[in-house]
Design a protein around this nucleic acid. Sequence first.
DNA 1: ATAATAGTCCGCCAGG
DNA 2: GGCCTGGCGGACTATT
Length: 319
Amino acid sequence: MSASGRLVAVLCLDGVVAFDVAAACQVFAPAAGAAAGHYDVRVCGARRTTAAAHGLTIGTSAGLEVLEAADLIVVAGTEPIDPPVSPRVRRALRAAAARGARVASICTGAFVLARCGLLDGRTATTHWRHAPALAARYPEVQVRPDVLYVDEGDVLTSAGLAAGLDLCLHLVRTDLGAEVANAAARETVVAPHRSGGQAQFIALPVPEPSPVGVGATRQWLLEHLEQDFSVDDMAAHALMSRRSFTRHFRVETGMSPAAWVMDQRLDRARRLLETTDASLDAIARRCGFAHAASLRARFTAGVGVAPTVYRATFGERRR
DNA sequence: ATAATAGTCCGCCAGG
DNA sequence: GGCCTGGCGGACTATT
Protein backbone atom coordinates (compact mmCIF):
# COMPACT_ATOMS: atom_id res chain seq x y z
CA MET A 1 0.00 0.00 0.00
CA SER A 2 2.92 2.35 0.56
CA ALA A 3 3.45 4.89 -2.18
CA SER A 4 7.12 4.04 -2.60
CA GLY A 5 9.39 1.08 -2.13
CA ARG A 6 7.09 -1.49 -3.64
CA LEU A 7 8.82 -4.82 -3.41
CA VAL A 8 9.21 -6.41 -6.83
CA ALA A 9 10.35 -10.02 -7.05
CA VAL A 10 11.57 -11.24 -10.42
CA LEU A 11 11.32 -15.01 -10.35
CA CYS A 12 13.96 -17.06 -12.17
CA LEU A 13 13.23 -20.73 -12.71
CA ASP A 14 15.67 -23.06 -14.45
CA GLY A 15 16.07 -22.13 -18.08
CA VAL A 16 14.95 -18.58 -17.44
CA VAL A 17 15.13 -16.19 -20.36
CA ALA A 18 17.67 -13.54 -19.40
CA PHE A 19 16.06 -10.92 -21.59
CA ASP A 20 12.84 -11.11 -19.58
CA VAL A 21 14.69 -10.69 -16.31
CA ALA A 22 16.65 -7.79 -17.71
CA ALA A 23 13.52 -6.12 -19.07
CA ALA A 24 11.91 -6.04 -15.64
CA CYS A 25 15.10 -4.79 -14.00
CA GLN A 26 15.58 -2.16 -16.65
CA VAL A 27 12.16 -0.69 -16.06
CA PHE A 28 11.75 -1.11 -12.30
CA ALA A 29 15.26 -0.97 -10.92
CA PRO A 30 17.08 2.12 -12.24
CA ALA A 31 18.90 3.93 -9.44
CA ALA A 32 18.48 7.21 -11.25
CA GLY A 33 15.66 8.60 -13.35
CA ALA A 34 11.98 9.12 -12.92
CA ALA A 35 11.05 5.77 -11.43
CA ALA A 36 14.08 5.66 -9.14
CA GLY A 37 13.32 4.64 -5.61
CA HIS A 38 9.76 3.64 -6.25
CA TYR A 39 10.54 -0.02 -6.52
CA ASP A 40 12.75 -2.36 -4.59
CA VAL A 41 13.70 -5.07 -7.08
CA ARG A 42 14.98 -8.52 -6.13
CA VAL A 43 15.92 -11.13 -8.66
CA CYS A 44 15.11 -14.34 -6.90
CA GLY A 45 15.58 -18.05 -7.40
CA ALA A 46 15.90 -21.31 -5.55
CA ARG A 47 19.70 -21.13 -5.62
CA ARG A 48 22.45 -18.49 -5.67
CA THR A 49 22.74 -18.85 -9.39
CA THR A 50 20.23 -20.00 -11.94
CA ALA A 51 21.08 -21.65 -15.23
CA ALA A 52 19.43 -19.52 -17.86
CA ALA A 53 18.58 -20.23 -21.47
CA HIS A 54 21.30 -20.00 -24.12
CA GLY A 55 24.00 -21.06 -21.70
CA LEU A 56 23.81 -17.92 -19.58
CA THR A 57 23.92 -17.88 -15.83
CA ILE A 58 22.00 -15.47 -13.67
CA GLY A 59 23.08 -14.61 -10.17
CA THR A 60 20.10 -14.06 -7.93
CA SER A 61 19.96 -11.45 -5.19
CA ALA A 62 17.37 -13.16 -3.04
CA GLY A 63 15.86 -16.51 -2.23
CA LEU A 64 12.33 -17.65 -2.71
CA GLU A 65 11.26 -16.14 0.62
CA VAL A 66 10.83 -12.73 -1.05
CA LEU A 67 7.88 -14.14 -2.91
CA GLU A 68 6.03 -14.14 0.38
CA ALA A 69 6.45 -10.42 0.88
CA ALA A 70 6.48 -9.08 -2.66
CA ASP A 71 3.90 -6.58 -3.85
CA LEU A 72 4.57 -7.56 -7.43
CA ILE A 73 5.96 -10.82 -8.73
CA VAL A 74 7.27 -10.90 -12.28
CA VAL A 75 7.62 -14.43 -13.64
CA ALA A 76 10.18 -14.48 -16.42
CA GLY A 77 9.81 -16.88 -19.32
CA THR A 78 11.74 -20.12 -19.61
CA GLU A 79 13.14 -22.35 -22.31
CA PRO A 80 12.05 -25.01 -22.62
CA ILE A 81 8.51 -23.91 -21.90
CA ASP A 82 6.24 -25.09 -19.11
CA PRO A 83 8.91 -26.16 -16.60
CA PRO A 84 8.05 -28.00 -13.42
CA VAL A 85 7.11 -25.67 -10.59
CA SER A 86 8.06 -26.59 -7.06
CA PRO A 87 5.28 -26.75 -4.48
CA ARG A 88 6.94 -23.90 -2.64
CA VAL A 89 6.83 -21.58 -5.62
CA ARG A 90 3.33 -22.67 -6.44
CA ARG A 91 2.17 -21.93 -2.93
CA ALA A 92 3.94 -18.59 -2.89
CA LEU A 93 2.42 -17.45 -6.18
CA ARG A 94 -1.06 -18.50 -5.13
CA ALA A 95 -0.71 -16.84 -1.77
CA ALA A 96 0.56 -13.66 -3.37
CA ALA A 97 -2.44 -13.46 -5.65
CA ALA A 98 -4.74 -14.27 -2.75
CA ARG A 99 -3.39 -11.49 -0.60
CA GLY A 100 -3.81 -8.94 -3.36
CA ALA A 101 -0.28 -8.73 -4.70
CA ARG A 102 0.02 -8.64 -8.45
CA VAL A 103 1.52 -11.50 -10.40
CA ALA A 104 2.78 -10.79 -13.88
CA SER A 105 4.38 -13.02 -16.49
CA ILE A 106 6.57 -12.26 -19.43
CA CYS A 107 6.54 -14.44 -22.52
CA THR A 108 6.40 -18.13 -21.60
CA GLY A 109 6.17 -17.26 -17.92
CA ALA A 110 2.43 -17.56 -18.52
CA PHE A 111 2.85 -21.34 -18.41
CA VAL A 112 4.06 -21.07 -14.84
CA LEU A 113 1.01 -19.04 -13.87
CA ALA A 114 -1.23 -21.49 -15.69
CA ARG A 115 0.39 -24.42 -13.91
CA CYS A 116 -0.36 -22.75 -10.60
CA GLY A 117 -3.99 -22.35 -11.61
CA LEU A 118 -3.75 -18.58 -11.54
CA LEU A 119 -5.07 -18.25 -15.06
CA ASP A 120 -8.09 -20.50 -14.72
CA GLY A 121 -11.15 -18.76 -16.06
CA ARG A 122 -9.01 -15.79 -17.07
CA THR A 123 -7.82 -14.22 -20.26
CA ALA A 124 -4.08 -14.41 -20.85
CA THR A 125 -1.46 -14.18 -23.54
CA THR A 126 2.02 -15.51 -24.24
CA HIS A 127 4.51 -15.62 -27.07
CA TRP A 128 2.53 -16.25 -30.26
CA ARG A 129 4.54 -19.36 -31.06
CA HIS A 130 3.51 -20.97 -27.79
CA ALA A 131 -0.04 -19.69 -27.59
CA PRO A 132 -1.52 -22.88 -29.08
CA ALA A 133 0.39 -25.00 -26.56
CA LEU A 134 -0.85 -22.86 -23.69
CA ALA A 135 -4.42 -23.18 -24.86
CA ALA A 136 -4.11 -26.92 -25.41
CA ARG A 137 -2.47 -27.75 -22.09
CA TYR A 138 -4.60 -25.43 -20.00
CA PRO A 139 -8.13 -25.45 -21.41
CA GLU A 140 -9.37 -23.32 -18.50
CA VAL A 141 -7.36 -20.41 -19.86
CA GLN A 142 -8.78 -18.07 -22.44
CA VAL A 143 -5.71 -17.50 -24.62
CA ARG A 144 -5.43 -14.36 -26.72
CA PRO A 145 -2.58 -14.87 -29.16
CA ASP A 146 -3.07 -11.50 -30.76
CA VAL A 147 -2.33 -8.92 -28.07
CA LEU A 148 0.78 -7.48 -26.44
CA TYR A 149 -0.39 -7.97 -22.91
CA VAL A 150 -3.48 -8.66 -20.82
CA ASP A 151 -4.23 -6.86 -17.57
CA GLU A 152 -6.62 -8.83 -15.40
CA GLY A 153 -5.96 -6.65 -12.39
CA ASP A 154 -4.08 -8.95 -10.05
CA VAL A 155 -2.81 -11.25 -12.77
CA LEU A 156 -1.11 -9.91 -15.87
CA THR A 157 0.45 -11.70 -18.81
CA SER A 158 2.48 -10.47 -21.74
CA ALA A 159 3.54 -11.75 -25.12
CA GLY A 160 7.06 -12.41 -26.31
CA LEU A 161 10.17 -10.59 -25.15
CA ALA A 162 9.68 -6.95 -26.03
CA ALA A 163 6.04 -7.07 -24.99
CA GLY A 164 7.38 -7.71 -21.49
CA LEU A 165 8.79 -4.22 -21.58
CA ASP A 166 5.40 -2.90 -22.59
CA LEU A 167 3.81 -4.71 -19.69
CA CYS A 168 6.36 -3.39 -17.20
CA LEU A 169 5.82 0.13 -18.48
CA HIS A 170 2.09 -0.42 -18.21
CA LEU A 171 2.56 -1.35 -14.55
CA VAL A 172 4.63 1.77 -13.94
CA ARG A 173 1.95 3.77 -15.69
CA THR A 174 -0.70 2.29 -13.43
CA ASP A 175 1.36 2.83 -10.27
CA LEU A 176 3.05 6.13 -10.91
CA GLY A 177 1.33 7.80 -13.85
CA ALA A 178 2.06 8.46 -17.48
CA GLU A 179 4.83 11.02 -16.96
CA VAL A 180 6.99 8.65 -14.98
CA ALA A 181 6.21 5.80 -17.36
CA ASN A 182 7.10 7.92 -20.35
CA ALA A 183 10.36 8.95 -18.73
CA ALA A 184 11.18 5.33 -18.01
CA ALA A 185 10.34 4.48 -21.60
CA ARG A 186 12.61 7.24 -22.82
CA GLU A 187 15.48 5.82 -20.80
CA THR A 188 14.82 2.39 -22.19
CA VAL A 189 14.43 3.86 -25.67
CA VAL A 190 11.15 2.15 -26.41
CA ALA A 191 7.76 3.43 -27.41
CA PRO A 192 6.19 5.22 -24.45
CA HIS A 193 2.84 3.59 -24.68
CA ARG A 194 1.62 0.60 -26.55
CA SER A 195 -1.75 -0.42 -25.25
CA GLY A 196 -2.33 -4.05 -24.41
CA GLY A 197 -4.81 -4.62 -27.19
CA GLN A 198 -2.27 -3.84 -29.83
CA ALA A 199 -1.55 -6.70 -32.16
CA GLN A 200 1.60 -8.75 -31.77
CA PHE A 201 2.06 -8.71 -35.51
CA ILE A 202 2.57 -5.22 -36.69
CA ALA A 203 4.63 -4.07 -39.60
CA LEU A 204 5.99 -1.03 -37.77
CA PRO A 205 6.11 -2.07 -34.13
CA VAL A 206 7.29 1.23 -32.73
CA PRO A 207 4.68 3.92 -33.31
CA GLU A 208 7.32 6.41 -34.30
CA PRO A 209 5.82 8.15 -37.27
CA SER A 210 7.51 6.90 -40.39
CA PRO A 211 7.29 8.52 -43.77
CA VAL A 212 6.09 5.34 -45.43
CA GLY A 213 2.57 3.93 -45.41
CA VAL A 214 0.16 5.72 -43.13
CA GLY A 215 2.99 6.94 -40.90
CA ALA A 216 2.92 10.42 -42.33
CA THR A 217 -0.79 10.60 -41.67
CA ARG A 218 -0.32 9.46 -38.09
CA GLN A 219 2.28 12.17 -37.64
CA TRP A 220 -0.16 14.69 -39.04
CA LEU A 221 -2.89 13.45 -36.71
CA LEU A 222 -0.61 13.84 -33.70
CA GLU A 223 0.14 17.41 -34.68
CA HIS A 224 -3.54 18.26 -34.98
CA LEU A 225 -5.01 16.14 -32.22
CA GLU A 226 -7.16 19.02 -31.03
CA GLN A 227 -9.18 18.74 -34.23
CA ASP A 228 -11.97 16.39 -35.08
CA PHE A 229 -11.33 13.76 -37.74
CA SER A 230 -13.46 11.31 -39.60
CA VAL A 231 -11.89 8.27 -41.22
CA ASP A 232 -12.57 9.94 -44.56
CA ASP A 233 -10.48 12.95 -43.51
CA MET A 234 -7.59 10.68 -42.61
CA ALA A 235 -7.91 8.67 -45.81
CA ALA A 236 -7.93 11.87 -47.83
CA HIS A 237 -4.71 12.98 -46.16
CA ALA A 238 -3.14 9.61 -46.98
CA LEU A 239 -4.44 9.84 -50.56
CA MET A 240 -6.22 6.53 -50.23
CA SER A 241 -9.75 5.27 -50.27
CA ARG A 242 -11.34 4.77 -46.90
CA ARG A 243 -11.17 1.02 -47.34
CA SER A 244 -7.48 0.92 -48.22
CA PHE A 245 -6.63 3.36 -45.47
CA THR A 246 -8.28 1.40 -42.69
CA ARG A 247 -6.71 -1.77 -44.04
CA HIS A 248 -3.19 -0.33 -44.05
CA PHE A 249 -3.72 1.33 -40.74
CA ARG A 250 -4.60 -1.93 -39.07
CA VAL A 251 -1.67 -3.77 -40.58
CA GLU A 252 0.80 -1.12 -39.44
CA THR A 253 -0.53 -0.28 -36.01
CA GLY A 254 -2.65 -3.24 -35.05
CA MET A 255 -5.52 -0.91 -34.31
CA SER A 256 -8.37 0.73 -36.16
CA PRO A 257 -7.96 4.42 -36.98
CA ALA A 258 -10.60 5.61 -34.52
CA ALA A 259 -9.26 3.47 -31.69
CA TRP A 260 -5.72 4.69 -32.32
CA VAL A 261 -6.76 8.33 -32.33
CA MET A 262 -8.67 7.78 -29.09
CA ASP A 263 -5.56 6.23 -27.51
CA GLN A 264 -3.53 9.26 -28.52
CA ARG A 265 -6.15 11.66 -27.20
CA LEU A 266 -6.25 9.90 -23.85
CA ASP A 267 -2.45 9.82 -23.66
CA ARG A 268 -2.32 13.55 -24.16
CA ALA A 269 -5.08 14.10 -21.62
CA ARG A 270 -3.16 12.09 -19.05
CA ARG A 271 -0.06 14.14 -19.59
CA LEU A 272 -1.93 17.44 -19.36
CA LEU A 273 -3.74 16.33 -16.22
CA GLU A 274 -0.44 15.47 -14.61
CA THR A 275 1.61 18.43 -15.66
CA THR A 276 -0.79 21.37 -15.88
CA ASP A 277 -3.52 23.00 -13.86
CA ALA A 278 -5.67 23.58 -16.92
CA SER A 279 -9.39 23.08 -16.51
CA LEU A 280 -10.97 19.86 -17.69
CA ASP A 281 -12.72 21.79 -20.40
CA ALA A 282 -9.47 23.31 -21.67
CA ILE A 283 -7.75 19.93 -21.61
CA ALA A 284 -10.69 18.36 -23.40
CA ARG A 285 -10.41 20.88 -26.20
CA ARG A 286 -6.65 20.51 -26.51
CA CYS A 287 -7.06 16.76 -26.87
CA GLY A 288 -9.83 16.92 -29.44
CA PHE A 289 -12.81 16.18 -27.24
CA ALA A 290 -15.90 18.29 -27.79
CA HIS A 291 -16.24 19.15 -24.12
CA ALA A 292 -15.29 18.07 -20.63
CA ALA A 293 -18.22 15.67 -20.43
CA SER A 294 -17.06 13.54 -23.33
CA LEU A 295 -13.48 13.57 -22.07
CA ARG A 296 -14.70 12.43 -18.68
CA ALA A 297 -16.68 9.55 -20.15
CA ARG A 298 -13.95 8.30 -22.49
CA PHE A 299 -11.21 8.82 -19.91
CA THR A 300 -13.01 6.84 -17.26
CA ALA A 301 -13.77 4.08 -19.73
CA GLY A 302 -10.23 3.94 -21.08
CA VAL A 303 -8.06 4.60 -18.03
CA GLY A 304 -10.25 3.17 -15.33
CA VAL A 305 -10.48 6.24 -13.09
CA ALA A 306 -12.07 9.64 -13.52
CA PRO A 307 -9.86 12.51 -14.72
CA THR A 308 -10.01 14.37 -11.42
CA VAL A 309 -9.09 11.24 -9.51
CA TYR A 310 -6.23 10.69 -11.93
CA ARG A 311 -4.97 14.22 -11.43
CA ALA A 312 -5.22 13.94 -7.66
CA THR A 313 -3.21 10.72 -7.81
CA PHE A 314 -0.51 11.65 -10.29
CA GLY A 315 -0.61 15.40 -10.71
CA GLU A 316 2.43 17.39 -9.60
CA ARG A 317 1.46 19.21 -6.45
CA ARG A 318 4.12 21.86 -6.64
CA ARG A 319 3.67 25.11 -4.85
C1' DA B 1 -33.27 6.95 -20.07
C1' DT B 2 -34.48 5.81 -24.70
C1' DA B 3 -34.68 5.74 -29.41
C1' DA B 4 -32.94 7.86 -33.67
C1' DT B 5 -28.94 8.90 -36.11
C1' DA B 6 -24.28 9.01 -37.63
C1' DG B 7 -20.02 6.99 -37.88
C1' DT B 8 -16.92 2.96 -37.83
C1' DC B 9 -15.10 -1.58 -38.84
C1' DC B 10 -14.29 -5.35 -41.74
C1' DG B 11 -15.62 -9.57 -44.66
C1' DC B 12 -16.61 -10.13 -49.26
C1' DC B 13 -15.89 -9.60 -54.04
C1' DA B 14 -15.03 -7.70 -58.60
C1' DG B 15 -11.63 -5.54 -61.35
C1' DG B 16 -6.85 -3.88 -62.60
C1' DG C 1 -2.37 -17.26 -60.20
C1' DG C 2 -0.98 -13.70 -56.71
C1' DC C 3 -1.48 -9.21 -55.16
C1' DC C 4 -3.59 -4.87 -54.28
C1' DT C 5 -7.41 -1.57 -54.53
C1' DG C 6 -11.77 0.22 -53.38
C1' DG C 7 -17.00 -0.16 -53.42
C1' DC C 8 -20.81 -2.43 -50.91
C1' DG C 9 -23.32 -3.64 -47.04
C1' DG C 10 -24.29 -5.37 -42.56
C1' DA C 11 -23.09 -5.55 -37.70
C1' DC C 12 -21.70 -2.81 -34.25
C1' DT C 13 -20.77 1.48 -31.37
C1' DA C 14 -20.99 6.21 -30.04
C1' DT C 15 -23.56 10.47 -29.76
C1' DT C 16 -27.29 13.32 -29.36
